[in-house]
Simulated scan of single mutants.
Amino acid sequence: MKPRYKVDLPGLQALCGMNYAKLLRLMPARDSRDCWEYSASADGAHKISIRILERAPYTTTVVVEQQGNIHRWLRELSLAVRIYHDAEMAEVVNWAQYRQFLGRYPYPNEQMHQMDEKTQLNRFLSDWLGLCLAQGHSLEYSNFTKLGEGI
């Protein structure tokens, strides 16, 4: 018999903490702005945008979107992310038609969620933000300034 899946809560919290730090680097002057645009390619063809949807005293909800086909397997994408400023964490709260993911799903299930769907989505966000920071270019500056140079 296969052992029951257990949520790695400290690991998930650490992952959400890394997502928080990465998002803040991509959102300079976030108190006075609502949108940031980047490109995943030097020619500006693959746009990545971060838009603030909602501001509250302790949380901010943003949508992170990628437009244009970077690869045949990576199409347009949109993730809603809630940023918890008091806890210094950011987690995916909406992807496609799904909202508010459970920490653990029974398997199999009708929606075909993986047992650790929430962790996988937050790991994907972390990898994606890391790619943006490592190879992305700001669309606000001429010559598509590399993120590490412009921020």
Rank of each mutant, 00 (worst) to 15 (best):
C132I: 10
A90M: 06
A56E: 15
P57A: 13
G68H: 05
H85E: 13
T60E: 15
R30I: 08
S49F: 02
F124H: 09
K118M: 08
K118I: 01
E65T: 10
A90I: 07
P10I: 05
E54Q: 14
P3Y: 04
G148M: 06
D43K: 11
Q97R: 14
K2H: 12
A80E: 14
L125W: 06
Q66N: 07
R75W: 10
M1V: 10
M112F: 11
L129G: 03
S41D: 15
M27Y: 03
E54Y: 08
Y84W: 10
R55V: 03
P108G: 05
E37R: 14
Q114V: 06
F124E: 02
H113F: 15
L139A: 00
Y58T: 15
H113W: 14
L133Q: 03
L23M: 05
R123W: 07
R104M: 13
A90G: 04
D127P: 00
R25M: 09
T59F: 12
V93A: 03
M1C: 10
T59Y: 07
S126P: 00
Y105P: 02
L77G: 02
R82D: 05
Y105A: 01
I48T: 13
G17F: 04
R51S: 11
C16N: 14
S126R: 09
D31Y: 06
V62S: 02
C132H: 06
R75N: 15
L125Y: 09
R99H: 14
L133T: 05
E91C: 04
Q111I: 05
